[in-house]
Simulated assay, not measured.
Amino acid sequence: MSPVDFVPEAVLFDMDGLMLDSERAIIDCWREAAIDLQVEVDDDLWFRMIGMHEKDYVPLMLRTMHEDQVRALREACYVRYHQRIEDGIPLHAYVRDVLADLQARAVPRAVVTSTQRLRADRKLATSGIASFFEIVVTGSDVTEPKPAPEGYLKAAAALGVDPARCVVFEDSAFGVRAALAAGMTPIQVPDLIEPDDATRALGHRIVADLAEAYALIR
């Protein structure tokens, strides 16, 4: 895997699945909610929803269940997930090490997430990494979420950095496509879902963990 061929002027991070081990947490909450409400759901649905904005995953749910079931599932899931957030969602490996090193090197850092503002800020706070970031762009701050580039372009503008000089760490195909559309250099660290052939055909770097990703820009 070839290193990035420029010195990044900023590093932008996805949040869920990349830094926080939240994808497993939210899937567990969806499963528990479905069991409690006695709604039969194919487990594949929860995995297909990973990385999706609410405006995209709700129509997906409505293909296989009634609107009242979707509403009840969301409410039951969010009660559980809120408690997980308050307890502090665990970090993935090497997150704090990478953030601390970037901070020590005075490399600007931002979060770009599809999660809504209040929940995103709370996740970062309870997981103990909020102070590492100058800028946080959330789903509340954009008109078009990932895979649209709007969030990443807003982060680069807020940091005063040319998008072409930004490296993005992402776990999902949605995020990779957003970063590429913004003219940035993505490095993908897959979490629960391995990149499919269409994602690999994008030609970006794909690594096993955040330490490997960081080594490509050191």
Rank of each mutant, 00 (worst) to 15 (best):
M1Y: 06
S2F: 02
P3M: 03
V4E: 11
V7N: 02
V11C: 10
L18E: 02
D21A: 15
D28P: 05
A34M: 04
I35E: 12
D36R: 14
E40C: 05
F47I: 08
M52D: 12
H53N: 12
Y57P: 04
V58P: 01
L62R: 15
L62H: 09
R63L: 13
H66W: 03
R71T: 07
A76V: 01
C77R: 15
Y81E: 09
Q83L: 05
R84D: 02
I85T: 13
I89H: 09
P90H: 06
L91G: 14
Y94M: 07
Y94N: 14
R96P: 11
D97W: 01
L102W: 14
L102I: 03
R105G: 00
R105W: 01
A106M: 00
V111K: 04
L118D: 15
A120D: 06
K123N: 13
G128A: 10
V136D: 13
V136E: 12
G139V: 10
S140M: 02
D141C: 14
D141W: 05
T143H: 05
E144F: 13
L153N: 11
A157M: 09
V161N: 10
P163Q: 07
A173C: 04
G183N: 04
P186W: 07
P195A: 04
D196S: 07
R205V: 11
A213I: 06
A215N: 10
